[in-house]
Design a protein around this nucleic acid. Structure first.
Length: 798
RNA sequence: GCGGGUAUGGCGGAAUUGGCAGACGCGCCAGACUUAGAAUCUGGUACCAACCGGUGUGAAGGUUCAAGUCCUUUUACCCGCACCA
């Protein structure tokens, strides 16, 4: 029987040796496998962590057996709100809480037998780590990619904190799920949009899951079109719009600007209904995300009276409207509306009785907008008439540029990264505000700029950082002119440390640089990174951005941080719902380990289903896997040391080695385990196995069930299994002399024949035509056609 | 609305990529061992008919000698984005 005592015995041996530690031996072939380092929360390890880590754990253990120098590190993404909220509630310092949580996590990981290199742990909250986070920030600042801007930011009233776009997806706060509001605030921003194209282009050269690439492409959201300037009638001014379809410019019957558009203030004296417009803007701002998007069908708006736009091509006067269906944050905050060919413009035009002019053949715009406009011919468009839309687009852009009324332009839906949190538990931004010199970088030799001690971790009512109250820390001298100055009191968001942590693993104790050139050259890029889908448009984008920036500045040797990226599926509760405290369907890994042993949890989580897909938890499934491991332990009773040989076992063993080798590499752990179960079932049926065959089997099972396999191995061998090599398989031993082919009549199977493996079509035909069974199903005169696919099928068409 | 994904026995899930649907596990049924139970071992288990056969991969069409797999239409659920101009 497999029991907890077995776990303990082998964990003691492993963790007291350096077997799992990566060697800085640059001559060896390397493998860098990475998992997303966890946030050490107070609740401890979750089964979701176990699934996320197990994928790479199996690969790492296999690669070591294959002779690779493996770097499989673990660390702690420890800055963040839960710890801080806990500190606010209890008064216990986040440092103390974090250390305690890391200890718990480490213990849990070790009771699961994870083969991490624990000597390379990094902790984002450790000053020796965040020194380099701050250092990278200063580089960004130096290059103008970190800037302070007063702008509308996403803000969570509940957490009292500014959020990045990536943290407020769907209008909900990433942390608390509360409604995100827009607030004007002066905050640090990172110019990730400067890297949009590089991040997009490089995707092609990466081995990421297709759905991950798609999500990143959509998030970056590149569109190409044109910017066109419309004159403002009666005033020397321009209204700049962005459109992806400049070819439809002859169909423009009105303009729409966002409620916050600056043109309203600019022409305040000319506009006759400023109050009405300002009232509308105020109302629009009050709308929640839900009201804006879900109730979007009912268009609202106000016409701007007193000014008009002029179509720069036709010279026609065009009314300007204000409506909240145009966003200030995308494009130029103003559009040319073409109601004939855009659903939103159409709804608006219908509601406010504005003209609708079709410019592309097809449809009936009296009834509905005609939006199938990727092909077709232009109409009502003067010199574009008769052209195909593709030609019309290039012709009109040419015209626009020649006549200097606009230019070709691209747009991204990705925004710059709001890089500031008004909280205590984060990296201090190493910037000093001087009245004379402006924003000045803290000198490199003063890094790390450590967090000061505070009495109260609570952020201020108006969303100020608690650091603002620490006068002795805030008040400092300007590094430039030595006059009294104040420190920046906002801290960095949690995503800062995780944007580069994988680089620190290659040289975690280096005091002089973030990592040595030689170690970076040898270990990076990460060969394989596994993590959750929820980070694809957050952490994964951010870290690619930072890495590319570091590459552009000669600090790291590769363009991209991760060569390959995969993602595990969710583990759901046994009710098929997402695990959550409120549903009461949470499984605690500790309970499973205590009752069934670490390898049972390890193997069950891999056996649960396709690694990339969500799968519900099943207590019975756990028991089934335990039964399998018990059967493996009892294999010792079947071992024959007297030269036992069995062809059937050998064939199945070689098949198993082959399948498991391939399946692990493709993250098909469930079918790998199924094959190993099949093998064990066969040994039970035969009743005997040689020591050599058993050893090979134990080796392929080892990455999944290291404790059990060490134990059984130790019964017949003097060394430890982890000091051995991955077994090879012999393709010849998998082959049989004859195979069974199904014989179909009109596509349904009637009987089977045995034929030599390498039989030709003609030989197979001879065999099947003389088979006794044939006459039962087929009258030879009625055969119309005979299909023979060697190795696959025989089909009579009658 | 747009993008991505999923749908297969009582349940979790397999299927060499167009070639014997249901591997493996759970559950269930039976047998062996046992005074008995647990554990263990062995066998059976898609459905209907129970003899021949017939029907089956969300639904409806189609292509093909052959479709879970390809095409068209459609339904449900999950995930992501979203008046993106």
């Amino acid at each position: 029987m497999y029991s907890k005592e077995i776990d303990k015995k082998w964990q003691d041996k492993w963790y007291n040796s350096d077997y799992f530690n990566a060697k800085d031996d640059k001559k060896m072939k390397k493998f860098y496998g990475l998992i997303e380092f966890p946030y050490p929360s107070g609740v401890g390890l979750h089964v979701g962590h176990v699934r996320a880590f197990m994928g790479m754990e199996v690969i790492a253990r296999k690669k070591r057996l294959e002779g690779y120098n493996v770097l499989f590190p673990i660390g702690w993404d420890a800055f963040g709100l839960p710890t801080e909220n806990y500190a606010i509630k209890t008064g216990i310092h986040p440092r103390v809480v974090t250390d305690k949580n890391i200890e718990t996590f480490t213990k849990q990981l070790k009771t699961l037998g994870f083969s991490f290199d624990f000597t390379r742990q990094v902790d984002t909250t450790d000053p020796s780590f965040y020194k380099w986070t701050q250092w990278i920030f200063l580089k960004l600042f130096e290059k103008g990619l970190a800037y302070k801007d007063k702008t509308e930011v996403n803000y969570c009233n509940n957490c009292r904190v500014v959020l990045a776009n990536e943290e407020s997806q769907g209008g909900k706060c990433d942390r608390c799920g509360g409604e995100v509001v827009q607030k004007e605030k002066e905050v640090w921003m990172l110019k990730i949009t400067d890297y949009a194209d590089k991040l997009l282009e490089e995707l092609d050269n990466l081995d990421y899951l297709p759905r991950i690439k798609t999500m990143q492409e959509n998030w970056i959201g590149k569109s190409t079109g044109a910017e066109v300037n419309f004159d403002i009638y009666g005033k020397e001014g321009k209204l700049k719009i962005y459109t992806t379809r400049p070819d439809t410019i002859f169909g423009v019957t009105f303009m729409v600007i966002a409620p916050e558009h600056p043109i309203i203030q600019k022409y305040k004296d000319k506009i006759e209904n400023v109050e009405e417009i300002e009232m509308y803007a105020k109302e629009a701002k009050k709308k929640t995300e839900f009201e804006r998007v879900q109730l979007a069908k009912d268009k609202t708006g106000v016409e701007v009276k007193g000014i008009k736009a002029i179509n720069p091509i036709t010279g026609r006067n065009i009314p300007i409207w204000v409506s909240d269906y145009v966003m200030m944050g995308y494009g130029t905050g103003a559009i040319m509306a073409v109601p004939a060919h855009d659903t939103r413009d159409y709804e608006f035009a219908k509601k406010f009785n504005i003209d609708i002019i079709p410019v592309i053949e097809g449809g009936d715009v009296d009834k509905e907008p005609f939006t199938d406009i990727n092909n077709g011919k232009m109409i009502n468009s003067q010199f574009l008439n008769g052209l195909d839309v593709k030609d019309a687009i290039s012709k009109i852009i040419e015209y626009i540029e020649e006549n200097k009324i606009g230019k070709k332009a691209v747009n991204y839906s990705m925004k710059d990264w709001a890089f500031a949190r008004q909280r205590y538990w984060g990296e201090p931004v190493p910037i000093v505000k001087c009245e004379d010199c402006g924003l000045v970088a803290v000198p490199e030799n003063e890094l790390p700029l450590k967090l000061p001690e505070v009495e109260d971790f609570k952020p201020g009512e108006g969303g100020e950082s608690p650091l603002i109250k620490v006068e002795s820390w805030v008040n400092t001298k300007c590094p430039n002119c030595s006059k009294p100055a104040k420190r920046e009191t906002d801290t960095m968001p949690q995503w800062a440390g995780s944007s580069w942590y994988y680089l620190r693993y290659v040289d975690p104790h280096n005091n002089n640089e973030l990592a040595s050139k030689e170690n970076l050259e040898y270990w990076t890029p990460v060969d394989w990174y596994n993590g959750g889908m929820e980070h694809v448009t957050r952490h994964l984008i951010y870290s690619r951005f930072w890495h590319r920036f570091l590459y552009d500045n000669g600090i790291v040797p590769t363009k991209e941080p991760y060569k390959k990226r995969t993602a595990q599926g969710l583990i759901l509760g046994s009710d098929g719902e997402k695990m959550s405290k409120s549903r009461g369907n949470v499984i605690n890994p500790d309970d499973i380990i205590n009752e069934y042993g670490a390898d049972t949890l390890r193997a069950y989580i891999l056996f649960i289903g396709d690694y990339e897909m969500a799968a519900p938890w099943s207590d019975n499934g756990v028991k089934g896997v335990k039964k399998f491991l018990d059967r493996v332990v009892r294999l010792e009773n079947f071992v024959d040391l007297n030269g036992f040989k069995n062809e059937e076992i050998e064939r199945e063993l070689n098949k198993t080695i082959k399948k498991v080798t391939e399946d692990y590499e493709n993250m098909k752990y469930n079918t790998a385990i199924a094959q190993m179960m099949t093998f064990v079932n066969l040994v039970y049926k035969i009743g005997k196995i040689s020591k050599e065959d058993l050893n090979k089997f134990l080796l392929v099972l080892n990455p999944v069930a290291p404790h059990v396999t060490e134990e059984v191995w130790s019964k017949f061998n003097d060394d430890m299994i982890i000091n051995n090599s991955w077994p090879n398989y012999d393709e010849n031993k998998i082959k049989t002399n004859t195979i069974e082919l199904a014989v179909q009549v009109n596509g349904s199977v009637k009987f089977r024949v045995n034929v030599p493996v390498d039989a030709s079509k003609e030989e197979i035909e001879d065999i099947v035509m003389s088979d006794n069974n044939l006459t039962k199903y087929v009258n030879k005169d009625s055969i119309k056609k005979l299909i023979i696919v060697p190795g696959r099928i025989i089909n009579f068409v009658i």
